[in-house]
Design a protein around this nucleic acid. Sequence first.
DNA 1: CTCTAATCGAGACGGTACGTCGCGTCTTACG
DNA 2: CGTAAGACGCGACGTACCGTCTCGATTAGAG
Lengths: 191, 191, 191, 191
Amino acid sequence: MSTVSDARIVRTREALRKAMIALAEESPLDAITVRAIAARAGVGYATFFRHYPDKDALLADVADRLIREFLQRVAPLLQDKDRAAAARSMCDFVLEHLAIYKALLAGGSGETVRAEMLRQTMITMAATRKRKPDGPLDDLMLFHLVSAILNLLSWWLRNLSAVSAATMAEVIERTVLTPVSLLRKQPPVGL
Amino acid sequence: MSTVSDARIVRTREALRKAMIALAEESPLDAITVRAIAARAGVGYATFFRHYPDKDALLADVADRLIREFLQRVAPLLQDKDRAAAARSMCDFVLEHLAIYKALLAGGSGETVRAEMLRQTMITMAATRKRKPDGPLDDLMLFHLVSAILNLLSWWLRNLSAVSAATMAEVIERTVLTPVSLLRKQPPVGL
Amino acid sequence: MSTVSDARIVRTREALRKAMIALAEESPLDAITVRAIAARAGVGYATFFRHYPDKDALLADVADRLIREFLQRVAPLLQDKDRAAAARSMCDFVLEHLAIYKALLAGGSGETVRAEMLRQTMITMAATRKRKPDGPLDDLMLFHLVSAILNLLSWWLRNLSAVSAATMAEVIERTVLTPVSLLRKQPPVGL
Amino acid sequence: MSTVSDARIVRTREALRKAMIALAEESPLDAITVRAIAARAGVGYATFFRHYPDKDALLADVADRLIREFLQRVAPLLQDKDRAAAARSMCDFVLEHLAIYKALLAGGSGETVRAEMLRQTMITMAATRKRKPDGPLDDLMLFHLVSAILNLLSWWLRNLSAVSAATMAEVIERTVLTPVSLLRKQPPVGL
DNA sequence: CTCTAATCGAGACGGTACGTCGCGTCTTACG
DNA sequence: CGTAAGACGCGACGTACCGTCTCGATTAGAG
């Protein structure tokens, strides 16, 4: 679906993604109709379905691109165990793409975005780490990591004026990154 | 809506709540139609709307009752700072009401339940604590606490066989309760 | 479908039939949209499908009622072998219900109407005649009878000013009723 | 549209006509999509519209060629007043081109074919006969003649095994050709 | 223990979004 | 640089669900 050369297709999909982001900023996901997306994109209604099977597929596409970029930036830092820098980098990245993140996290689309992020993180992790024990603990911690970060960021996006990026990064580091890291080093006896 | 004496009303609402829980176990929330709920409850379609304005109101009612009970059990322990016992109590409680929790958390209804739980926790906290500074940190930590716990529990409900209640409790304590507690005692400098 | 007591149903179907006839006078059948029928009937779009599976079903219902009345008038005469009177009666009947016939025959709906008329004539014949040989000749002649009459009438409806009812009746009698009757009395040797 | 020399154009149109006939054998006319015709003809979708403005135009072209041939064979006999031979010739001709006739008459395309046949017959008649009074009677009888014959033939095509060509010819002669001829010799008084 | 008013079932209805399909136009990529 | 391929706008289709509404028919609980 991504490797298409026809200029019209590229243009249309671009317009649809833009429209989705724009609308997601304004209303919760399930209040966004396909008709509204198509209209906003300046595209015929049926044309939407020629490119995406449904709303969620479009959202997943949008999320996919965003997360891919996000991970390219954050993953290296996590690999280097520089958690503080990683947390800082996250918050900066979010600030830079404020509009899109607001749309995707503060709206009702969190579920889809989280799922997509989990999926991609899995892939990235699998690609970088040699051995993948993939025990239940790893699975649980990855899920917690992604979910908790997304939750904290979504809170932040609704309270940007109250907390600075630096503070937010510290909170993420101390309440998520570090505890998870510790638990990994010293797993519960039952596991 | 709650203080009604007519036996028929009590009976009908009870049936609707039961039906909602039963259906939530089987399918994601937005695949549950009001018609299906009414049918399952053995109640006329229009009757549904005589008791709840819409699907979400019913779900909120169900969640409300569950969370009320949940908090009655967990809150005291948190007040007493016995985090390990509190975590343990949570997990036990979830195990006891497995079906309902599976329905409400592992389904697509997480968002509503989380919102309801946040709301009620706020109220409970406000009632027990005298002084409520309610700075952004408190707000953020409460949000994180509730969200993270619900997320961890919902993962657990999908992986019950992999992790025991004791282990799960330890995980919750070490990755959520303790870090949050520490952050509260020693807030980031920016706050 | 016909024996329903609910007043709303009766009212709605009545309105739909009226609307169908009105629109059929104005435009060919396949230029009539279900939306237009519903709008004209002052009825919701979806409501249409609660009563008829599609446009043709509504048309068939309209035709059914018309043909039932038509046959009640013409059949006795045919039984009595008074072909001239039967032909005359047909033409008079058509004149009396000019608008509806124009709608049903001169429009593009001939196919459906013819099918319905064939079906009903079959039933009527079967009910009145004791023995029903139903050989291929009977089948062919019945088909020819109905088709030819409908064709002649539809031509007449488009050329009302050119030919009187009496003349038209004579034409029908001499080119359809009598030849068919003769052929029946003295079938081709091959049958 | 007809006087074109480019070999590719001839080839494409030929392919489109073949495809139309093939598809018309399999499904009713309005279930045949332009896409299906183009695909069957091994031709691009848009290419269809470079040769015919729409589906009906292609069908009319197909019918036109068939009817032209048909009339060349039948008309002389009608001119010679040899009605029996004419009827016989018709039936033989239909048998020889069974597939195409089945496609055009027994399918849902009867209406278009009939219209085309009427048009062409008019032209042929006008060409052969010197004086063309063209009163309403002539018009009516021509319409009846064409319609009734097409109807009888289409019935026959659906019941080939039941009736021989000779019998069918006799039926056509006795129920259509002769009655029409008689009526012409001795018109109703009203005309 | 009755009577009366509230509750109930049944389901028709207007409305709106869905996803599909076909048409006929118009752009594009490719030979 | 022309032409076949096919993306596109349009608009109808038939489906599903929502929340409102109108009917009678129970049925609870007050007198």
